[in-house]
Design a protein around this nucleic acid. Structure first.
Length: 815
DNA sequence: ACCGCCGGGTGCC
DNA sequence: ACCGCCGGGTGCC
């Protein structure tokens, strides 16, 4: 046993956005082919092919098999020929070079991005000095002539007949064999968790535990690899390598949300604690143990550490360290001594960005678990890079939506799992992504086999031995229309008239998108009026910038509006939710890392949305929610129609059954402040959870609310965004949605916090919608979108986004 | 012979 | 490489 401080800490958790679904995996894959067009735009055309020669074999160690794919890599720095094109096998080992005569036109084509070149060695794989290689050129249709001409100029001719690839035929047979193997393979064996786990597991959770444990303790080669005469073959791809492929002792637990992925993972940590043995009960034995555990989770979300407390016997000390917050101790030694380390994607990537000082990346973890693992779907995001660099043999992804948008997401997962050769983009594209995109059945089959081999997925509708996995109580939604008082209506119409005038002008000028922040501000004001007039802040229009400090103030106002609008704004660069949001002088909001990267990579950096010049030092940060002026909650407090509607519901409920607990959900934290007043007045005991609260305060709020003893809070004021994944609020059986969200999925998710495993009552959801208002228009848009989603399965087309937004604004403002 | 031809040495880019 | 190519040796029939 070495005294290396980075030995075996164990698991890591990272969270994601979870959208429930009831599809089987094969359906999900089938759907992929529909929207995958956006992944590979028009790069998919085959321009032509030619047979070339790989020379210099005797100087390199890389070997290939008959029918094996090879990659072509430019070597512009080669001292003998700046046109050199290296040939490498799937493992990246050099096999040789393309003969120089052909390398010359290839170099031009590759360097100018006229086409990508793919190679397959058809025969002659045992030749000593050179071997033939079939080269296929792929690229945009418009480059076809340029490529053909370039090749012709050098005395070659590019054939255009489609060359069926040998590899597919081989793979077909193997894939079918494997498919049947997988059908046979049972994932229904159950395993009892370790004694230290005090929560009893449901049958499907025991099955997951068994499957995960067997994957972790397996000495087998990774999926699809076989040993043959001292070489390792990949049966899907026909690749052979000398080195034993790295173990893949993990996979994807892709159960629907609410099926207990976290509990199962905790059971796994405790039951396969070290050397295949469970976490023992006796303290003395434990102290000699040399392993520890790390686990990653995402920001804001539920308290995983609480769940450890909840599910692990109290007389067992499991060392759990919360590695987040400014006070976190960046010590490799400390982390290595833990059984479980919980951290967040943001902490992980911020440490990672700060290269010298990321203890998380210096520890060799026993196990890394990405909770809500689909957050790493963007390969360029710093978070993803930081996750990929974590060291561990046992890599797990927990995700309710493993294949959320496209095959690219799946590539990232393969990359994280280090499932060779799919962790390298070129091979992923050639073997899976392109074939599937082009509708190749073999490619699809291979993808299915691949996913099946490493994924366990059950849905709420799956059955174990003929029974539903979980029987959830009913969930009923009521929309309660609220009529504004005369006074409120008057004010509302006033604001609406002004807003329509401003937005109408933008439409005429065609400047809607450049003034998007203003438009959003107007919409937010209207929505705030629907809730409570006291919410509405001062209007700062798009006047002249004034002094820098005035500009700054205006920008802070705007970014605050954007972020608090609850519209779930995406960063236009990473297309993901905003992280470390900043606003440009031209009033567009991006993640700081994303926009900084843009500025770094361009000499004359321009705003991706409006092409205005931007500079790093001109980015204005979001100051956080504390900055906001408190609403009038003092003596001059007044009620609103919506607040009245809520209160009458709450009072009625309390009358009928004082033990009933409710969630009161809003996107406006200041609305929550306002609601606190009448709650106090009527003697309700309540708690609160919003995005501005520290992790520890949140945990307390949740714990208080979940407590069922008399006098415990019966109401939780919950901000829509804080009600993210993972939080368990099953104590509530009523949900009041105070204001409609742009994104209905966000509302569903929020409701899922209480409508989940452990809920014993039927869940009643009441949505307050103000009649004849922007809120009604929002609901209409929601409905329309939902219909689209039902029809086309949520195709997200960035080029339509702008148009769609403009249409939305028209509909909302009735212009 | 400022050639042709022969046969050994040699060999990616 | 059981090739091509290079360059030295060589030279009527």
């Amino acid at each position: 046993m070495t005294s290396n401080s980075c030995c075996h800490p164990s698991s890591a958790f990272i969270d994601f956005l979870d959208v429930g679904g009831t599809m089987t995996i094969s359906q999900e894959i089938a759907n992929l082919t529909e929207d995958s067009g956006q992944d590979l735009p028009e790069e998919n055309v085959q321009i032509g092919s030619i047979q070339g020669t790989v020379v210099g074999l005797r100087y390199y160690t890389g070997t290939v098999n008959r029918g094996e794919m090879v990659s072509l890599v430019r070597q512009p720095q080669n001292p003998y020929d700046r046109n050199a094109v290296m040939v490498a096998n799937v493992y990246g080992s050099q096999v040789g070079h393309i003969k120089k005569e052909l390398a010359a036109p290839m170099a031009y084509i590759m360097d100018n991005n006229l086409a990508r070149v793919e190679g397959v060695v058809p025969y002659g794989e045992t030749n000593k000095f050179s071997m033939p290689v079939n080269l296929t050129f792929w690229g945009k249709e418009e480059n076809r002539d340029a490529v053909h001409n370039q090749i012709r100029r050098h005395g070659f001719k590019l054939g255009t007949e489609f060359k069926g690839s040998l590899i597919c035929l081989f793979a077909l047979k193997n894939a079918f064999d494997k498919l049947f193997d997988d059908l046979m393979e049972d994932k229904t064996r159950e395993m009892e968790p370790a004694e230290v786990v005090c929560t009893s597991l449901l049958p499907h959770q025991k099955q997951a535990l068994s499957w995960m444990t067997s994957r972790e303790n397996s000495n087998d080669l990774p999926p699809f690899w076989e040993e043959k005469s001292g070489l390792y073959f990949n049966v899907l791809t026909n690749f052979a390598v000398k080195e034993r492929p790295e173990k893949v002792l993990g996979g994807i637990l892709a159960d629907d949300m609410g099926l207990g992925k976290t509990l199962t993972t905790i059971a796994l940590i405790a039951s396969n604690f070290h050397n295949g043995k469970p976490l023992p009960l006796e303290q003395s034995v434990r102290s000699r143990r040399s392993s520890s555990t790390c686990k990653m989770k995402s920001t804001s979300k539920g308290k995983k550490s609480d769940q450890f407390e909840q599910h692990i016997r109290a007389d067992v000390t499991l060392k759990v360290y919360l590695y987040y917050g400014a006070e976190r101790i960046r010590s490799v030694k400390l982390l290595s001594e833990q059984d479980v380390v919980l951290t967040t994607y943001n902490v992980l990537s911020s440490d990672f960005g700060n290269k010298a000082n990321s203890p998380l990346h210096k520890v060799n973890w026993l196990r890394v678990v990405l909770d809500e693992g689909h957050v790493i779907r963007n390969p360029n995001a710093l978070q993803s890079k930081a996750v990929l660099e974590l060291q561990s043999e046992r890599r797990w992804i927990l995700s309710g939506t493993p294949i959320q948008n496209s095959l690219k997401d799946l590539y990232m997962l393969m990359s994280f799992l280090k499932l060779k050769p799919f962790d390298v983009k070129e091979w992923w594209s050639r073997i899976i992504q392109r074939p599937v995109t082009m509708g190749d059945r073999v490619g699809l089959k291979n993808l299915q086999v691949l996913v099946k081999g490493i994924t366990l997925r059950r849905t709420k509708n799956s059955k174990v031995a003929g029974r539903m996995l979980v029987q959830l109580p009913e969930r009923r939604v009521f929309v309660q229309h609220v009529t504004l008082s005369e006074e409120e209506r008057e004010e509302y119409e006033q604001v609406r008239k002004e807003g329509r005038k401003v937005i109408g002008r933008y439409f005429e000028e065609g400047t809607i998108m450049t003034n998007y922040a203003d438009v959003l501000a107007i919409l937010v004001r209207l929505r705030q009026y629907c809730c409570h007039p006291g919410l509405v802040g001062k209007y700062t229009g798009a006047d002249d910038p004034g002094t820098p400090s005035e500009l700054r103030e205006r920008l802070i106002n705007k970014i605050t509006l954007v972020l608090n609008s609850g519209s779930d704004e995406e960063c236009a660069i990473c297309l993901d939710s905003l992280r470390q949001p900043v606003i440009t002088y031209c009033a567009h909001v991006y993640c700081r890392p994303c926009i900084c990267e843009v500025i770094r990579s361009e000499k004359q950096a321009r705003c991706p949305l409006c092409r205005a010049q931007i500079k790093t030092k001109e980015l204005v940060e979001y100051p956080g929610e504390e900055m906001q002026a408190g609403a009038a909650t003092g003596e001059n407090w007044r009620s609103s129609s919506k607040v009245d509607a809520l209160m009458s519901n709450l009072l009625k409920l309390r009358n009928e059954d004082p033990t009933v607990k409710s969630l009161v959900v809003s996107q406006f934290t200041r609305f929550m402040d306002l609601i606190e007043v009448p709650l106090r007045e009527y003697g309700f005991s309540f708690t609160r959870l919003d995005g501005s609260m520290a992790q520890k305060t949140r945990a307390k709020a949740i714990q208080d609310f979940q407590d069922s003893s008399p006098g415990s809070p019966t109401i939780m004021l919950l901000s829509l965004k804080a009600g993210g994944v993972g939080i368990n609020l099953t104590a509530a059986s009523h949900v009041f949605m105070m204001d409609p969200a742009w994104n209905p999925a966000a509302e569903d998710q929020c409701v899922d916090r209480c409508h989940r495993l452990g809920q014993s009552r039927d869940v009643v959801i009441t949505k307050f919608i103000v009649k004849d208002s922007v809120e009604e228009n929002m609901v209409k848009i929601q409905k329309k979108k939902q219909e689209l989603v039902d029809k086309a399965f949520g195709v997200k087309k960035p080029q339509d986004l702008k148009q769609a937004r403009m249409e939305e604004i028209r509909a909302l403002m009735e212009i």
